[in-house]
Design a protein around this nucleic acid. Structure first.
Lengths: 337, 337
DNA sequence: ACTGGCACTCCATACTTCCGAGTGCCAAGT
DNA sequence: ACTTGGCACTCGGAAGTATGGAGTGCCAGT
């Protein structure tokens, strides 16, 4: 259907269009890439490519630009992920190694990725559902109120304020804390509900209401609606590109946690880089953007995902390289802490 | 210098320009406001106002628009803060009352403020320097590593990972934790350095290196460079306005914590609403924006600041009303939790 | 199957025209 | 001493009008 030269032409069109941001014509193509044939031949090829839906012309008598389908083919078959330069790798290392807690790691990562790709970076916090409980803390903060602090093995710290109408003495709090810790330490979040089901029976009757309150909050807000946290950075980079859609839509989408989560997609294999192009995107208003994402984690375990959002007219090989590299380094950092 | 009618003219110009976004001429003025004089008279007044620097014309033979100085006069002497409508107040209450921890309060607040004013909202987390220590926690997370968790009376939870080369037994950790808590609980952050200076002497020699490590982190990253956290929301609202400067600058500024902090300014009196207009702004690139900010806190104590950033061409009375109202409600919420 | 030639299309740019809102100023009125 | 109507003037923006060039499709020739 598409012989080698036609594929080469498509590749050349994508590359030129990405770097110049202008529709590319047959003449320009043979000038810049040595294809060994004349413009007329290229024109015939381009006619075929257009018929198949890989490229299109904005107006009659203008050059061609790739369609989403064209980018898809390019990403799948015509390009390879571009490794970062030594300098870039070093930059990543030095930039990430100074982090002192999880918030800091995530914050640095998202800024780094934005800077590296000159696009909008999105990073998800290590998922709670795939983490393990390291420590549970109960801190009475006022009469009738207790702060539940939960620390995971990935360094994530979650807090919830709990109302305990019956009050809770310092002593009972200590008791309950000890119980919770022995019960939960080392447990995967998914196993928490089963492990605590019989806990109310283990405490004295007067402590039971408090225990129930704590447990209900624990299960409700932490386990069931396994809170996923996502941050982004580099929105300023959107300004340099002009989207067909007013990029108000894009900014709005970015500020919606839910959309952001869907954007990164379900984690397939850990370190595989996935690309979603233009209309492949679930979200309205992001139809003119592409998302390059990858999972990150420690060892085989994928903890969460991170990625980059940019115009469909994007340097896919370079972006994929950056995303892959950053994902790996973040995994290393997390493993080492 | 400026008689009453000239002031009325300036007020009318500001109001009209804010609502129409078009330079306003003498004819339009007398039509829309019943000033009781003819356009020619207004023209004379406008000439004076222009000479004094309160208004300017974009081009010869165009209407006038206010200068920064004009807005300043308007805010200081020609307008009063506009109270919110009942419906808006109710919206604030219901929206904020569902929050379950500090992160949630701040997150909701910033989104609420952005929605209310249709501009970019900025909220600072309750300042550590003005908070009190409620609880200190030490959690060993791996050999040689301890997580220091610090909880303030405002519900803020800070965490730092600490390397302890010599290691720390569960027992020593408990001991140290108890010491820290008795030492620091209830203390203002400003008083922490003094209170811990003699702490190393109170622990057994083998625990001393660990104690020193913990203290150095505590003092360094929490007290000295009293970490201030700021978040923003509503960047999408920037899209509807077109700034003279490419708003890339604005977005960049928004992603800089430091700039954001400076933006809100030093807290003067708690609930006074302050306005910084255009060039009064410290930051380059925000010269075409104005900031309306106020402190919030519990009782007399100002914990931090929040505000709104928008174009100088802004509905000051309305924005000031929204900022003031939200600041008050946040204070109430914090007081009640 | 490829290539050179050729007529055609159409976008972008630049240039011109034209209208009207708005101004400044002046002389007359109160 | 203000205020006002009148008037000439300015200038930006919209709409219309060339013009050039990049790019195309097609065809006949190799």
């Amino acid at each position: 259907m598409l012989d080698d030269r036609k594929l080469a032409v498509l590749r050349a069109i994508v590359e030129d269009y990405v770097s110049t941001n202008e529709p590319v014509g047959s003449k320009a193509l043979v000038d810049r890439h040595n294809l060994g044939v004349s413009p007329a031949t290229i024109r015939n090829d381009m006619a075929v490519l257009e018929e198949q839906g890989y490229i299109q012309q904005p107006h009659t008598s203008a050059g061609r630009i790739p369609t989403d389908k064209g980018y898809r083919l390019f990403v799948d078959r015509l390009s390879t992920i571009k490794p970062l330069s030594k300098a870039e790798k070093r930059a990543i290392e030095t930039f990430l190694s100074g982090a002192y807690d999880l918030d800091d790691v995530v914050g640095r990562t998202v800024r780094l990725l934005a800077q590296l790709t000159r696009q909008v970076a999105v990073v998800q916090y290590p998922s709670l559902t795939r983490s393990y409980v390291r420590h549970v803390e109960l801190v009475p903060v006022a009469t009738g109120r207790v702060l539940l602090v939960l620390i995971t093995d990935t360094g994530r710290v979650e807090q919830r304020l709990i109302e305990i109408p019956s009050g809770l003495t310092e002593e009972s709090a200590g008791h309950l804390r000890a119980l919770l810790n022995t019960c939960l330490s080392g447990l995967a979040f998914g196993d928490v509900p089963g492990a605590v089901s019989d806990l109310p029976e283990k405490v004295s009757p007067e402590e039971r209401p408090a225990a129930a309150a704590v447990l209900s909050v624990l299960l409700e807000t932490l386990v069931e609606k396994h809170e996923e946290k996502v941050v982004f950075a580099g929105a300023a980079n959107l300004a340099s590109v002009d989207f067909s859609r007013s990029f108000r839509d894009v900014l709005e989408a970015l500020e919606e946690q839910v959309v952001l989560m869907r954007l990164l997609g379900e984690s397939a294999d850990s370190s595989t880089v996935t690309v979603r192009i233009g209309t492949e995107n679930p979200d309205e208003g992001l139809r003119s953007t592409s998302v390059v994402a990858a999972g990150y984690g420690v060892g085989d375990l994928t903890l969460a995902r991170l990625g980059v959002l940019g115009p469909t007219r994007m340097d896919y090989p370079g972006t994929m390289g950056a995303v892959r590299a950053v994902a790996r380094y973040v995994g290393q950092i997390l493993a080492g802490s």
